[in-house]
Write a protein that binds this DNA or RNA. Structure first.
Length: 420
RNA sequence: GGAGGCGUGGCUGAGCGGUCGAAAGCGCUGGUCUUGAAAACCAGUAGGCCUUUACGGGCCUCAGAGGUUCGAAUCCUCUCGCCUCCGCCA
């Protein structure tokens, strides 16, 4: 976060903390900032003195040199003392600043949890079955499409093995979403999923999401979403204005510990430790309207995918309490799950203004020469196996077979999944 | 995993204890010239922080973090990254 903005308008950030239900002491931050700048000024004054003395030393006679050097030794002692104080303050300041959340946009509803999210759109006909519909697990087991028991045997709790047409279906759906987004100008990317800590801090996953993330080495982690490596891809770079926007569609695995979700969705494919996804990323100019425009456009893209698959869904405007630290506004797409008689989240579309780009140091040079932090956005393309849940349930037939959505048929060369 | 080499501005690349935030070239921007473009010529061209109404002033950064020194791009230590060779290998 830009400390200057917090200085200018602390109330806005305090309010943001309240709305997002994140407890950060802004007053303490500002106090640390004040102390920090005071010490910094002291340090710089001493440094200026030393620099001056060093210039004099070059031309000085031997006697004078001795004098200056002994004087500088004294100054050095003072310098070390202040430096120590400064470092301590700076460290505390930085760790606090890292936790300040982005205030939510004005059109974000207030609320504490996802129950307070506001439905803004519904699409598709909720299917009316003229038979007793089954849940996806029953359907998949009957058709030998999934093996949860052996999944757990191999990989532990919340692990699974897809089989037969489910494998093809997953590949097809990923490829379909990839193709659709490429047609819209997104550059396909297959990034690393093992990422350094800075990438997770930079995207805002850390510090709050640390327990949610698998650590594989001292400074290497398994990314929980394709967004992380894709955003870190351009860290520390300066674009030319005409190089923006950057549009990427990433495809990769994603890994989540689901540490805080004991008891939730313990069975099945809804909440799992590893999954595949395509993800849309936009890096655009530092302009609120530009961000908003892309936010809506990314939503449209995902809606298009859902509509092509003919899965009934709704869109919710997520409430402030449901937003992550860096998110300014988020839409979730939720797909209809007949067996649960409700919609469940499949996509997450957010804009973050300059939250991530500031942390990752992604900038661009305007035509005027001024350098600014870019804006960033992301949205799911498709996430599997979660999407299979509603797909399979909505497409089930009386005999337990599953129709394959028309747009996927060319990828699988099949119209229906039947018992072998 | 073993051995060696190397990390300097947008890029190439010089510098190897003080006059170096850094030569030179390329690139880029502006100008002159031109009907226009190119060429040529001239000028400008790293980022960040503190301070200031402003003009300006100061500080930091030569992969990163420490250290030696009055003084570090230059010397030392560690970390990270890249390259080459060997080994292993989807």
């Amino acid at each position: 976060m830009d400390i200057k903005l917090i200085r200018q308008n602390p109330d806005k950030f305090k309010e943001g903390c309240q709305k997002k239900n994140i407890n950060i002491d802004i007053d303490k931050l500002l106090e640390l900032d004040k102390k920090r700048r005071e010490k910094l000024r002291n340090l710089e004054e001493i440094r200026a003195k030393k620099n001056l003395a060093n210039k004099q030393i070059r031309k000085a006679s031997v006697d004078e040199k001795e004098k200056i050097i002994s004087k500088m030794r004294e100054v050095d002692k003072k310098f070390e003392l202040i430096k120590e104080e400064f470092n301590k303050i700076e460290k505390e300041f930085n760790s606090l600043l890292l936790k300040v959340p982005m205030p939510p946009a004005p059109d974000v509803p207030e609320g504490k949890t996802d129950k307070d999210n506001i439905e803004i759109k519904k699409w598709g006909q909720i299917p009316k079955f003229d038979f007793q519909p089954k849940d996806y697990l029953t359907l998949m087991k009957n058709l030998d499409l999934v093996d949860l028991e052996r999944g757990a045997k191999i990989g532990g709790f919340r692990q699974y093995v897809l089989k037969n047409e489910a494998v093809l279906l997953e590949q097809a759906i990923l490829k379909f979403s990839l193709d659709l987004l490429i047609k819209k100008g997104f550059i396909p990317m297959r990034p690393t999923v093992i990422v350094r800590g800075y990438a997770l801090v930079g995207t805002g996953m850390f510090p709050f999401g640390r327990e949610e993330t698998y650590q594989v080495d001292k400074d290497l982690f398994l990314s929980g979403t394709t967004e992380v490596p894709l955003m870190a891809y351009h860290s520390n770079e300066i674009f030319k204005e005409n190089e923006l926007p950057k549009l990427y569609v990433g495809i990769s695995s994603a890994f989540r510990k689901e540490a805080g979700s004991y008891g939730k969705d313990t069975k099945g494919l809804y909440r799992v430790h590893e999954f595949l996804q395509t993800e849309q990323i936009v890096i655009c100019k530092n302009d609120l309207n530009e961000s908003i425009k892309w936010h809506e456009r990314l939503l449209k893209n995902s809606e298009e995918i859902m509509q092509a698959l003919k899965i009934p869904y709704r869109v919710v405007n997520c409430c402030a309490g449901d937003l992550a630290q860096g998110q300014v506004k988020r839409y979730d797409i939720e797909a209809w799950v007949p067996s649960e008689n409700r919609y469940r989240e499949t996509h997450s579309d957010s804009y973050l203004l300059d939250f991530q780009t500031r942390r990752l140091n992604i900038r661009y040079r305007e035509k005027s020469g001024e350098i600014k932090f870019a804006h960033s956005l992301n949205n799911t393309g498709i996430a599997s196996p979660r999407i299979l849940i509603s797909l399979i349930e909505n497409y089930q037939q009386k005999d337990g077979s599953i129709l394959i959505p028309k747009v996927l048929q060319k990828y699988i060369d099949k119209k229906i999944i039947r018992k072998r």
